[in-house]
Design a binder for these strands. Structure first.
Lengths: 141, 141
DNA sequence: ATGGCTGCAAAAGTTTTGCACTTCT
DNA sequence: AGAAGTGCAAAACTTTTGCAGCCAT
């Protein structure tokens, strides 16, 4: 598998040992905005002896090294996504659970405003909106 | 206590039974952006037989009725605050943990942009920034 | 009075940790 | 070889639930 080789290189370049478990987990995170348990279940299909601890430890480490981002939706657990070059934020459909990414030029300005007004050195920003997607077209009034 | 009477009225008006536990919990949430366990600990000082289950059930119900908002910071548990008339968002200092509220006129526009571009009916928005407050003045570069 | 609420205990769900063994470099 | 990573089991932490009795309306 070509992509596995690429994943190993990404890991090495970030100063992490390139194990098969990590390459696999990285591969799976590219599939979407998954939580730890979903990563675990998908990974087990290809590597049945993988443990959930390894998933958690790997997610932690990938986050520290800046290879993935952690998302905090309205739930008791987190979701993860591959770090992307352009900043973006998320919409969560309350009906079907779909997660939609949206680009946002305003959030940059928002950061600057806050930094100026509160003398706050911003290192991260997360914007999450909830609602109903066009497919679900809820008659919520 | 005058404020307890007020809390009971708030509860009744929202169609909830006004119990002493709920009035107390509402009172304590006014103290800040607390998580369930912190609400529990503070509440026990005034009502030692209060159970943690009641705290969770009450927070759940207050959220449903729109009396409080749930915040999702970079943690495995949630925080709560009294619902306020004007929308605002939060800064979390990574050094001292302080939470700063900031008003934001841009988020309204952000919602409108998203609604238009993705045909998404927005019901909620949460903006959280992390960084370092002026007191901590980190030499993070 | 009666339906909702509470406390307690137990369970469920999520994340972390200790340790012996394995793998990467 | 040595350090870092893994699997397993157990623990820790957060939240939910069943149930008998209590309380607000």
């Amino acid at each position: 598998m070509k992509t596995m080789e690429k994943n190993r290189k990404v890991l090495s370049r970030s100063g992490m040992r390139a194990t098969s478990q990590r390459a696999l987990i990285l591969d799976i995170i590219r599939e979407g905005h998954l939580d730890a348990d979903e990563v675990y279940r998908r990974a087990r299909e290809r590597h049945p002896r993988l443990s959930l601890s390894t998933v958690y430890r790997t997610l932690q480490k990938l986050k520290e090294r800046g290879l993935i981002d952690e998302l905090h939706f309205d739930e008791t657990h987190h979701h993860y996504e591959i770090k992307q070059p352009t900043g973006h934020h998320h919409l969560v459909c309350l009906s079907c659970g779909k997660i939609i990414e949206f680009a946002c030029q305003l959030s940059q300005k928002m950061k600057e405003d806050v930094a100026r007004q509160h003398k706050f050195a911003v290192t991260g920003i997360e914007v999450n909106m909830t609602g109903y997607c066009s497919d679900c077209a809820k008659d919520s009034k």
